[in-house]
Each structure stands twice: as structure tokens, then as C-alpha cells.
Nucleic acid binder design. Sequence first.
DNA 1: ACCTGAACACCGTTCAAGT
DNA 2: ACCTGAACACCGTTCAAGT
Lengths: 235, 235
Amino acid sequence: MAEQAEKLRRTPLSRDRILRAAVALADGAGIESLSMRNLAQELDVVPMALYKHVANKDELLDGMIDVVVGEIDPLTSGEGWQPAIRRRVLSARQMLRRHPWASLAIESRNMATPAVLGYLDSMIGALRAGGLSTDLTHHVMHALGSRILGFSQELFDAARQAGRSGPIAPQPPAPLPPEVALRFPHVAEIAAAASHDDGSVVGQGCDDQFEFEFALDLLLDGIERLREQGWTAPR
Amino acid sequence: MAEQAEKLRRTPLSRDRILRAAVALADGAGIESLSMRNLAQELDVVPMALYKHVANKDELLDGMIDVVVGEIDPLTSGEGWQPAIRRRVLSARQMLRRHPWASLAIESRNMATPAVLGYLDSMIGALRAGGLSTDLTHHVMHALGSRILGFSQELFDAARQAGRSGPIAPQPPAPLPPEVALRFPHVAEIAAAASHDDGSVVGQGCDDQFEFEFALDLLLDGIERLREQGWTAPR
DNA sequence: ACCTGAACACCGTTCAAGT
DNA sequence: ACCTGAACACCGTTCAAGT
């Protein structure tokens, strides 16, 4: 009966509470720790209770994606399309750094959730308002590709590895082993150049933020150049 | 004893045979059907027999990635860096279309397998040979990002959905439902523009190949412009 | 020494029995 | 009508028993 009282006092389950708990669990323990059973335990609830609010695990993941996409800052207005989109993509990137599981989750689902559609819709709207034709806007959305949701795409991303294998995480960037450097000299050369930059001799850590903005601006500048030149679809 | 004879006649297990069977299974039935147990059954072998040749499922996936990365055409020489890299990235894209599970698999692992390193190394070598500084090459590798392994990144990719949910696959591109079009007008406008292009009124199919090459060339042209201008790292 | 069946500790989800 | 324990059909992997 103490248990019954406890049960009555407990915040009632809701889809929203489930989704927020699921995001927190994935953030904290890694996406591979997110099972219906673990999530139920976290919520002090029997596993089957979740199924009253989400149809299955796929719908749970869709809901989680909607939650985190909702965290991306809205588009600002009153400036050119380029700074507005730049700001927004960088905001998406920050969101994805808070939720390391999200980029893979978004990519592995078909993305037709309202929040994602709304995000894409406003992004397209900004490009159109900036004077790009529908054709150019269409192709640009494809070209921005993963960047549009801020995927960091670091090739040897420690954060991603952390996201996969739980909360052990923050390994320092590993130095390039000599046998690897010998076999793959070009990789070694780039790693060495990157090391010089941040002063460390062995570390091959890249400045993620710089790399991200470099790529983003490369694309944005190319797009602006096409717009200036009055690009039209090849027929 | 008939079984014993059968067993003796059977091609002996080997890491290579396991990897090729695993790739075939993932290609045919989808990556979610690739379990150690299913794979063993496909090979007419008890599940535990696989563990003599691969340490665990993660190593199996790494091996599969090496197999498919090995299918990418080698770099050609005797032309500029831009056409050479363009050709190679397009070859990687073809590989990924043959193995729809591969891009997600590659992205979700840390990629430090010999085959992937070799691929990246030769790519870096071509950029260096083309006259890019180590700094610029480094940033360009990040900028090419997912494109470098040919990820198609189609936003609503039917093929990817197929890859996830088994061999049911080739759904025709779904028309945009009216309630979606009303809620997300910019998405609708782009979908309409794309439909006009290929003549179909309802279909929102994009020309994947065109989109891919558009994005690729946007990046390659931007990179070439930086090289011409003698780009150096901001200090 | 090698191979392998059974077992362990998990999954997502169904379903029927309990309230 | 609602909730939920047990069960089902799976996992990857360990381990000890069999040859």
C-alpha cells in the first residue's frame, strides 16, 4: 500500500515525458542503451506502459527526433539569406553536439516528421526569399545535403565513437601510429600539418568548428556565385 | 554419415567467405537481417563457427566495409586532379548504390580500417599532386566530408528506406500529400518544380545523379577557385 | 585440441489473464 | 475497460561439456 501511494503520487506518464526521458537517456548513456525496457525502468514504469503512448520503438525515435529538431533556433530575418542560413545551420550543429546520437538517428529514418519538414520548409523559404530560383533552391538543398542538418561528419570523430559506446567517452585524439603513417603517407602529412597548427606534436585533433565553417562557406559562396550569375537548370 | 560426407565436401569456412556471404546477405535482405545466426544459417554452419574467423559482430562489419571499399575504382592518372577525383567519387557512389547499407555502416563505425585509410590516403595524394597545400587539402577533405565516400544523402531516399526494411523495396516516389503541401508551402513549391522537370505531375522524384554531380561540382569548383587564389590558412 | 550445444543476459512486442 | 505479467521469437556471446 506504500507502493500504491507512491504510484499515485508519481507524475503520470505522457508521450512528452517519455520522449524527454528517452532523449536524456540517449544523451547520457548512448543510443545503444536506449531500449524500451531501460527507458521504462528510468521512468519507474513497467515496459508495456510505454506502448500506450508510442506505438513502437520506431515511433519513439521519430518523436525524439522531433524533440531535438525543435531545439534548433528559428530563422532570423532582416539580413541576407547567406548569414541567416549560416546562423541556422550553425545552430543545428550545436544541437547535434548536444545530442551525439541524433545525426545517425535522423539519417537512418526517412525524416518525414512534422518537425523536420518544418525545418526544411523554412530553410527553403529563406533561399527563395534570397532570390534563388525554385530550380536552384532545389539543387542547393541537395547540395547542402548533410550540412543542412548540421552533420559534423568528422572523419575520425571521437564524439561519435563516444555516442556509440556509452559514457566512457572523452578519449583524447589518438596520435597516428608509426606503422599507419608509413603505410599511408598522405594521411600522415595532413595529420602533421594539422598538428603544427595547434602546437601539439603528436595529437591530430582538428579544429572542428573551423572545418565545419570552412565547408559551409565553401558551399554558401559557391551558391551565391551561381545566384549572381543567374544560374538556370541545364535543359 | 551422409551428413558427414556432406560436411566434408562443403567449402571450408574462411574469413573471406564469411565476409562475402555477409555482404550478399545485407545486400539482399537488408542490414537488419544480418545477424550472426542468420549468417551462419546462410553458410550452413553453426553460429559459433563464425567466431573462429571474426572476433565479434563489430569486426564482421569492419570486414564488410573493407570488402565494399575495395570495390571502388582506383585513381586514374594523366589528367587534372579535378576530373580524377570526380571520377573516383562517382565510382564510390556507384558502390554505395550497390550496397545500400554501406553508407550508414561506414558512418556509424570509426573507419580506421586499412581499406578506408588507403582510400583516403590516395584521395589526399591526388589533391596534393594537384597543387593544393597540406592545409588546404586537409580542410578540403573535411569539406568534401560525406561526399568523399559518395554518400548520396538524398533527403527522402526510397533506396535507403528499402535498405532498412528488407527486400520489399522499390516503392515509386510518393506524391506529396495535400495536407503536407498546405502546411509546408516551400517544400511543395520545390517538389512541384522538380515534378515539372521530369514531366510527371504527382511524382516528386529527383534526378539523383544530377543532384549528386551538382553538389560535387559546387564543391570541386569552389576548391579549385581557392587553389587558384593561392589560399592559405587564416592565422 | 578442436568443435558445438546449451545457456546467459538481453531485445521488441504479443497476448491473455488479472483487476 | 484498463493494466500488466508471462510468454514468444528473436539477439550476441560465454562457457563448459563433448568428441
